[in-house]
Nucleic acid binder design. Structure first.
Lengths: 290, 290
DNA sequence: CGTGATGTTGATTATAATCAAGGTCTGTGG
DNA sequence: CCACAGACCTTGATTATAATCAACATCACG
């Protein structure tokens, strides 16, 4: 009940709350508490570090606007981007006790974040179980995204990786109302995409061009659109299950209808893919080796 | 206080408890509760699935003995191993609410696991905060390991990946008393190593041989040893920070001294590496682009 | 024994990195 | 208003890395 009231005007809701509200049914009490909790804010300019490798996590961040990335640099000097944080995402959840960061987090463009002290998180777990479940859920989701990236890096071709990555960003942005069925605004350079996908800039560029020539992607400056979602999903081996899009499709929301429809469509395609994958997995062998 | 008593005879302690005891100081109450919680057990034969992709997680697992892996299969038929679960590890932590698994978990050899229902986990979070913190910690660690694999897959050469992986397993096994400074028993085939590292069997084999020829690894059947830890760590770009080995080095334990010494030594080397990495990161540029 | 799983090796091919050079666009200061 | 610098994108040529293909060796086990 409180949900529909709140969601009647999505615009008044902070992106982090919107994300939580999608996976969990919050009471007005919890909503108030959570929104009030975001008073303590900070903004970061392009390239500025929110956390540096080796530092101690002082608190958790909830992104209210802008994009951020986490990355590590190998001794050979190669940079690996580990995750991309979009509006509504949390950074450093479950840092109840001080821990040193094993990666750096930096703003890709101007970022506004709410700072959430560890005490608050403990509070939540004791007093607001549903809200706590939502946060746990967010942590699990980010772990799932990490797993999916592992699959991309280890078992997909350059083309699949790139397409998969763009589809993932598109879906995640739609879920927080920052993209429509028309496409999305890409805020990473091709070099950064390469650093996320373990590919060189040059290779990213060439495959991107090839995808455009084939009509699978459309790129106009930094605007990305996907003319034929169905083939794109197939070509990318994209299975949206790891993003939990389906939960939203069922929940009430005043999200523009075309966006919701598209997400639903993607979920259906995902189902098909999953089935086909199960079949081929069976065909592989009875045991699990190879 | 209770900790030293318990740890006076490590052998009587379940591997999962041992792992938790390393990161958190448990009371006798919590220890009793946790050990009693593991009555409900199951064993799985080689290749048997603990969880299948698409299934709903019914409960969380705590590995008491044996090795397990989680993996996904792409539509192209490539298998990507996401994580390796060793004795003392948890699978599916933070599954308070039912979720469908996005990967399959299968036993590599005979596995004995304790089944922990979601209710128990909620119990723990309400009644045993320290134990809960230990479990949270374990979840964060497994996420960190996943991140490290991302770095390997995206930014390290085949040789580095392989060496890094072997060093990781060795350290993790030492932490639960399943390996010594002499080396460890490898329970994965080269094909499985390839599936974990995004490499073909053939390539794994060749690089492994090359590492042996160079005297960096010694392989006798399935026994692996590392003659010169220092160079191995350097060659692998190995930074043990993601495994939290240091915590143990400080804690009381009757682990064989040579093993503890070795872990301490590895942590020191890790520190050196981290410093050098920070320097080169600074040298890179003031801003973060490239 | 023979069969299947695993490890080993060389030859060939494919994929992506690296190198090199130029192009476009944007913001800045003269 | 123009010249310039810096960031980003684009393209072709060359090289390196790892995949694939194809045998064969070894071992454990029924």
């Amino acid at each position: 009940m409180p949900q529909t009231i709140e969601f009647a005007h999505d615009g008044d809701v902070s992106p982090p709350l919107r994300r939580l509200g999608q996976s969990v049914l919050l009471s007005t009490d919890e909503i108030d508490f959570f929104e009030n909790m975001q008073q303590n804010r900070a903004t970061y300019g392009k390239g500025e570090a929110l956390i540096s490798e080796g530092d101690e996590f002082q608190c958790c961040f909830a992104i209210r606007s802008g994009w951020a990335i986490s990355y590590r640099v190998t001794m050979a000097g190669r940079r690996q981007i580990l995750s991309v944080y979009l509006p509504g995402d949390f950074i450093g959840l479950h840092i109840n006790f001080h821990r040193t960061a094993i990666y750096t987090v930096a703003a890709l463009n101007k970022v506004e974040a709410a700072l959430i002290e560890p005490m608050r998180l403990i509070d939540i777990h004791q007093r607001y179980p549903v809200l706590a479940a939502g946060l746990d859920w967010a942590a699990v989701r980010s772990s799932n995204i990490l797993s999916e990236h592992n699959v991309s890096l280890g078992a997909r071709t350059a083309e699949e990786r790139i397409l998969h990555f763009y589809l993932e960003l598109w879906c995640r942005l739609m879920l927080v109302g920052e993209a429509s069925s028309d496409g999305f605004h890409m805020r990473m350079t091709q070099e950064q995409v390469g650093n996320a996908l373990g590919l060189s800039v040059v290779h990213v560029n060439k495959k991107l061009k090839a995808l455009c020539r084939e009509g699978i992607l459309e790129i106009d400056g930094r605007m990305i659109s996907v003319p034929d979602v169905r083939t794109a999903i197939r070509r990318a081996d994209f299975d949206a299950a790891f993003l939990d899009t389906f939960r939203i499709a069922n929940g009430a929301s005043n999200r523009k209808n075309d966006t919701r429809d598209l997400l639903e469509q993607i979920d259906e395609l995902t189902e098909e893919m999953a089935e086909r994958r199960r079949e081929s997995a069976d065909a592989h062998t009875s045991s699990f080796s190879r």
